[in-house]
């Protein structure tokens, strides 16, 4: 029972990171029907920015908002300068541009911050480990039903729930949210009621990347460091979560992320011999294939989405 609860808690806190990644993917997908393959790397760039802020002595409480603002700007600029111009040509061109951006950002991170895990005293890092948003020492845990649950896990989970609440209010109670929903539903008509669709798409990319940045920082905190391959698997788990929840459903993305985090940890824990730490990523593969074959619209997506 204790083991089960611990694995559940670990699963939920990792799932929270996937949920953040999935949320970003879904917000972009709803607006334009594009899958942003650079989402993970955009988040990673912002995570490095947060690391750098830490090196300059800026506390994490301030560094995180800075990273998210950088993320917002990065997303918005990407949409305006790179995605919008080629979107007119073909969806394939958009796919290639996101892939190019993936490669470029991954190179850029390495070029600026070297290709080794940071912080690293070998290259003169001041910080001992990547700043965590929540108490992360070995002694920071609470005991529930005999299971020792890390405070960090609780914090991350609560953070994601809070963010989900904020996004729910954004989507359902504000003009911006209404405009985003309208563009997602019918972009042509959205123009005809006077919505600045270009502005909405730009802001969507900005918000998505800012959320991704939050995910990157949280994950680097759990991981104690940031490195060039940090977001590869997070991206694929996030994609699996978005697929599971439905690519046009933000709520589904969050739930999908949590489900996948739990499945992953349970599979790695209980089927240790077969799945183990190595094959955890296989969970994402299986989920993506099965969902796309059995119910392409996901658990909460609408079926109108054409999978082309």
């Amino acid at each position: 029972m204790e083991l089960f609860l611990q694995r559940l808690a670990d699963g939920l806190s990792q799932g929270s990171v996937y949920a953040l990644m999935a949320l970003g993917l879904v917000i972009i997908y709803r607006g334009t029907g594009h899958l942003n393959f650079a989402q993970g790397e955009m988040a990673l760039f912002c995570t490095y920015v947060v690391y750098q802020c830490g090196e300059w002595g800026i506390p994490i409480g301030l560094a995180l908002p800075i990273g998210m603002i950088v993320g917002f700007a990065l997303g918005a600029v990407t949409e305006v300068a790179l995605i919008r111009p080629v979107a007119k040509k073909s969806p394939f061109a958009v796919f290639i541009v996101t892939l190019g951006l993936f490669q470029f950002l991954n190179w850029l991170d390495g070029a600026i911050w070297r290709d080794q895990p940071l912080p690293n005293s070998g290259v003169g890092s001041v910080q001992q480990q990547f700043p965590s948003l929540f108490p992360s020492k070995d002694t920071d845990f609470i005991t529930i039903f005999g299971a020792d649950i890390k405070l960090q896990s609780v914090g991350v989970f609560v953070l994601v729930l809070a963010l989900t609440g904020v996004l729910f209010l954004l989507f359902n109670k504000t003009k911006l949210g209404l405009a985003m929903n309208a563009v997602a539903s019918n972009a042509e008509s959205a123009k005809l009621v006077g919505i600045r669709t270009n502005m909405v798409l730009m802001v969507s990319w900005g918000i998505a990347t800012a959320i991704g940045a939050l995910g990157g920082v949280v994950f680097a905190g759990i991981n104690h460091n940031v490195n060039l391959t940090l977001m590869f698997t997070v991206f694929i788990y996030g994609s699996a979560a978005a697929t599971l929840g439905g690519f046009d459903s933000p709520g589904g993305a969050v739930l999908g992320g949590l489900i996948i985090g739990v499945i992953e940890n349970m599979a790695a824990g209980y089927a240790d011999e077969w799945v183990g730490q190595q094959l955890k990523v296989g969970v994402a593969f299986v989920v993506i294939v099965v969902v796309l074959l059995v119910k392409p619209s996901g658990l909460f997506g609408t079926a109108k989405v054409e999978r082309v």
Partner: peptide
């Protein structure tokens, strides 16, 4: 063809 927002 009306062009409403079907999901809203």
């Amino acid at each position: 063809g009306r062009g409403t927002f079907p999901e809203l």
